[in-house]
Amino acid sequence: MSYKIAIASGKGGTGKTSVSVQLFHELSKSNSCILVDCDVEEPNDHLFFPNARQKEEEVIMQLVANIDEDKCTYCRNCVSYCEFNAISVIPPVNYAKIDASLCHTCGACLVACSDDAIFENGFEIGKMRTHKVNQQILMEGLLKIGSPMQTSLIRTLKKKTPQNTDFIIYDAPPGTSCPVVETISDSDYIILVTEPTPFGLHDLKLTVDLVKDMNLPFGIIINKSGSEFNKVHEFIKHEHLDLLAEIPFSKAFAKNYAQGNISEFDDSKNKTIFSGIRTTLLKKKMLHD
């Protein structure tokens, strides 16, 4: 059974991707592993695997409601059922239309309509790509530009992720809203990546509240550590949270990251840190199995 780890942060730019990619690289040494880039608005994990070979690409559709104006009696029943204001029915001018970009596929209008005037058809919300990286797999979702259906795309991406692997790493989008909730929802363990800055602390608090509310086990990585700002450490200590690791700030690392070189990044310090994290995760997986 696969052990699912979600990498989340709250604040953007704390190092979710760099931690995800390095962890994927580290876990791949001993186990089968799938990295799933759930940051569907701008997936960038693939940039760090120049040798990845794209295996397949699949268009992800969402069913959206449509109105057959020939059958519609303009009763507006569907309008009152729709929570998302996606339906416009204007009786005096015989106008009835559903805005696909607002439709959430809840199906309420299908129930509301007694004239059989509403039907569903497919509407593209994005793509899913599967890459082969050495013997492992990298998957990513790409939201169609302009579509607000991140959560729906992430849900499909997760559903289509093969489960016959030791580890699945979900690289979450930033923030604490629906797409993040969807990404982390069925994880066995969550790694919150933060940085020692006031913004990092502010968003860490929000994210800790979220994962506590969802009752999910989690640990924290302080990335880019070494600044004088110690309030993140104080917060973790005060709240008795689990500090998984600290990654010191390194200009050399930033340079390599910018060149897309982190999976092979040869830094003994980082290697020790990630092998420590791997040991912790392997123990957690064993207890879980």
């Binding site: 998302f84 204001n85 996606a86 416009s88 204007i90 005096p92 001018v93 106008y95 805005d99 607002l102």
Partner: peptide, 14 residues
């Protein structure tokens, strides 16, 4: 939450 503009436009037509 969403669709306010469309709803306002509908109102204008009505």
């Amino acid at each position: 939450q969403g669709g306010a503009g469309t709803k306002a436009a509908e109102k204008m037509i009505e």
